[in-house]
Design a protein around this nucleic acid. Structure first.
Lengths: 201, 201
DNA sequence: TCTTGAATACTTGTATACAAGTTGGTTAAG
DNA sequence: CTTAACCAACTTGTATACAAGTATTCAAGA
């Protein structure tokens, strides 16, 4: 995802196990995981690195929006005080992370915020789908957030603000308002992520 | 899924490799796959079998509907003659399968029908999600279809009819009609599958 | 009787070995 | 010069070996 491995590169289990000083077994498992995430494609001989195109990132965000839309549809009409408390805590930690330039922590809290919402829906199958894209989204957020912190630190504030807006919308228990707010937020991150990831790749 | 392994049963790699006369490596991979599908849960020692509840099956159908809804939203306004031709072919094969009591072929064509629609959307990430539930849905269809063929063969006809209706709706290029038809079809299968699977489990 | 502890028989994770098959290059023949 | 065939160096999939850690059982002592 960082672009370190160029699209089309062929990875072999032997080569990787030598490179990382471990045996083929854990490498093999890692390759399966990456394949499930769609980052590599397993073929007869060797695993080929799939480059991330703008389209791929858009598709990733299609799925994020799809999942979160579904989840919020279920949550919107109920009161979720304990969820909101956790979300506020997460935002507080984002602020702390921004203050002390801890971009890893910031990215993690951003992910955490959305994950909390999904978990709240209490839907095993949806949670599985989330888990299947969780790592790749975390990776995207890490790369993007690092870049954001480095290039334009002030750009972090509107991001935090958007999460505040989502909480406000949640409190209103107005389904439409909630969905709008989430959609707007995702459009925003979608653009930022696409821009930073494709620069590096 | 057939209920052969009761909920809570603990599977060990050693035990399974002995039982199936193969080494731990392929068993291990199989367990990962089952874990990704949510049929077992990997814990520190042993993998525990997750029983399928009514709720689990409903959740599975939530996801099917979610995916197909998303896909059809994208397809509905365009003309898809080649897709429709393939879908009609699939229905023909369902009819053949019904005629000659080939329930495996029937179940496969049922799956195929919906898979064709998803493939047509040409969306990598959505296709990955589909692939992650494909096997479990096929298993469900196989069990259900076998039971349907055995108990009440005539019940197969409305099922075929529903697929016809979906094609008609697709031809109309009326988004709302398409979505309604798919929803109705899924409600139907959802109930049938829930009923047959829980009897056996 | 209950608790504690040690031994044993499991478990998984990783490393290595081997078999079967694919790819690519080099050599020999036409 | 081209083509075909063989060989060598790779590949993955599976089997096996080993190390580290965990659960359970049984016995001994409080």
């Amino acid at each position: 995802m960082s672009g370190e491995l160029k699209k089309g590169t062929i990875l072999s289990e032997n080569q990787l196990s030598a490179e990382f000083g471990m045996s083929r077994s854990p490498i093999r498992e890692a390759l399966r995981v990456l394949s499930n995430e769609g980052l590599i494609e397993l073929q007869r001989m060797g695993a080929v690195v799939i480059g991330l195109t703008t389209r791929d990132l858009n598709e990733l965000y299609d799925v994020r929006l799809l999942l979160e839309h579904f989840v919020l549809e279920r949550l919107s009409e109920v009161n979720h005080d304990s969820l909101i408390k956790k979300l506020e805590q997460s935002i507080d930690q984002m602020n702390m992370a921004a203050k002390y330039d801890e971009y890893v922590e910031f990215a993690y809290q951003d992910l955490r915020f959305h994950e909390l919402v999904i978990i709240e829906a209490d839907h095993k199958r949806i949670l599985k789908l989330w888990e299947s894209i969780r790592e790749i989204i975390l990776a995207a957020l890490l790369i993007t957030t690092e870049k954001r912190f480095r290039d334009d630190k002030a750009a972090v504030l509107p991001l935090i603000e958007q999460h505040h807006e989502m909480i406000k919308a949640l409190k209103s228990q107005n389904t439409e308002r909630i969905q709008d707010e989430v959609k707007r937020h995702f459009e925003d991150t979608r653009n930022t992520i696409t821009a930073s990831l494709l620069n590096e790749a």
